[in-house]
Simulated assay, not measured.
Amino acid sequence: MKASGSGVAVGHEGWLYWVGRAGEVEAFYGDTATSRRILRRWTRLIGHRARRLDALGIRHVHTVVPDKLAIYPDLLGRPFPGLDDPPGVRLARSVAADSGAPMANLQTPLVAARDGEPVYLRTDTHWTYRGYLIAYRAFCEALNAPVADHVFAGTSTRETFTFDLGEKLVPPVDEAYVAYDFPRHAERIDANALVEVRESGRAVRPRGLFVGSRVVLQNKTAPDPRRVILFGDSYIYSPGARLTAMLAETFHEVHAIWSANIDWRYVEAVRPDVVIFEIAERFLRQVPNDRIHIDRFAEARARRAVRPTLREQIRRWLR
């Protein structure tokens, strides 16, 4: 198999890593002027968010999902800058010194668990089910919330799939993995326009219609009565056994929003007890501005998704 300029590095034993097409990941991971500037901006942003949420009386926690590079550096098979002190760890130190805003540490428990059953997929950037369980437990501990035991007692099936990094290779590489599920007590009670269009099959261009998604899950038997808003990326994705589904088994209500920006209008309207913010380490390279109205953004994306392009319209006219 070959990486073929795809930005994927092939490590030992078929482990794949996202390293970027133009050296941008290495430039960010190393202790460079660029990475220092970006992390300073994140430090200021998290401090500002913390002060605003404190003023609203809302408990909050930020977390950075470590890249697989930071958890399995030995399997990469070549030198790579910054892996002994990755950006997420440096950011947590900076935030602690600046504002003291709470941050959930995922690096330490993932490193501690790495030598057992894998915590990351071999051909993808995401966690295995075990990795998700570790993150779920870390969030519960950070928020003094009970862990739902049935999340850890799910059924399992062995499946094969071509994940994101594997499909970038020539030829594509699939992976056999163990998929887990658990009994669901939470039910989805709301979803915005982007979710509805994606699930309806009406999208002309269905690929990538995730950023801007918002769903609300409610659990009438949850052990923790609090309402949570969870901002994040693909690690929180609600279909399947990911963080949204897991947290909804602990908390009474979970609003899951796929966005690196916090929608302050939404936060102030819902008035949750807790706000959680999650971001993958590789996405720290772009600092958000928190100027978003999530449902307007979703509606605009949904309209574009069902509207044929000019080329598609011409093709239809010529039929």
Rank of each mutant, 00 (worst) to 15 (best):
V25T: 12
R44Y: 09
V61N: 08
A269Y: 05
G47W: 00
Y177D: 04
R78C: 04
K2C: 10
E249M: 10
D54G: 13
V173I: 12
W258L: 14
F161N: 08
S259H: 07
G88R: 00
T250W: 12
W15N: 10
E249Y: 12
G240Q: 03
G30R: 01
Y120N: 05
A203R: 00
T63G: 14
S234A: 15
D224L: 09
R137L: 12
R214Y: 09
S234T: 10
G116E: 03
I279M: 13
W15F: 12
I229A: 00
L45W: 08
I236W: 11
H62E: 11
R51W: 03
D224S: 12
P87W: 03
I276L: 15
A33Y: 03
A112R: 15
R184T: 09
G7P: 07
L243G: 07
R214C: 09
D74H: 12
L217W: 13
R265Y: 13
V170P: 02
N289V: 14
P183H: 04
A27T: 13
P171K: 02
A260L: 11
P81F: 05
L194P: 06
E249S: 11
I294K: 02
I292Y: 12
R122C: 06
D233H: 11
V254G: 01
H60V: 07
A179P: 03
F182T: 00
D54T: 11
V151H: 00
L284W: 00
D85N: 13
Y17T: 06
Y136N: 01
S99K: 02
R311S: 14
V228N: 05
G57H: 01
P102S: 02
V204M: 11
H12G: 05
E26C: 08
A179G: 05
D290C: 03
A138K: 07
I58V: 15
N289E: 15
A203Q: 03
E312R: 06
Y29K: 02
T162I: 13
F283D: 15
I46K: 00
N192H: 03
E141M: 13
F28I: 00
Y29P: 10
E278V: 10
A113F: 01
E196F: 00
R282W: 12
Q313W: 09
G166C: 06
R137S: 14
V10T: 04
R282P: 00
F163E: 05
A55I: 01
L133P: 00
G116L: 06
S213R: 14
G30A: 06
V215I: 12
T43M: 01
L83T: 10
R78S: 05
K2E: 11
E117D: 12
L217C: 13
Q286L: 14
R202T: 01
A148D: 09
R198L: 13
D295V: 08
A241F: 00
T43V: 04
G7C: 07
T250A: 07
A186W: 06
P146Y: 07
Y177P: 01
L56I: 08
T125D: 06
R285Q: 15
A145K: 10
A97S: 07
N261T: 10
H48D: 15
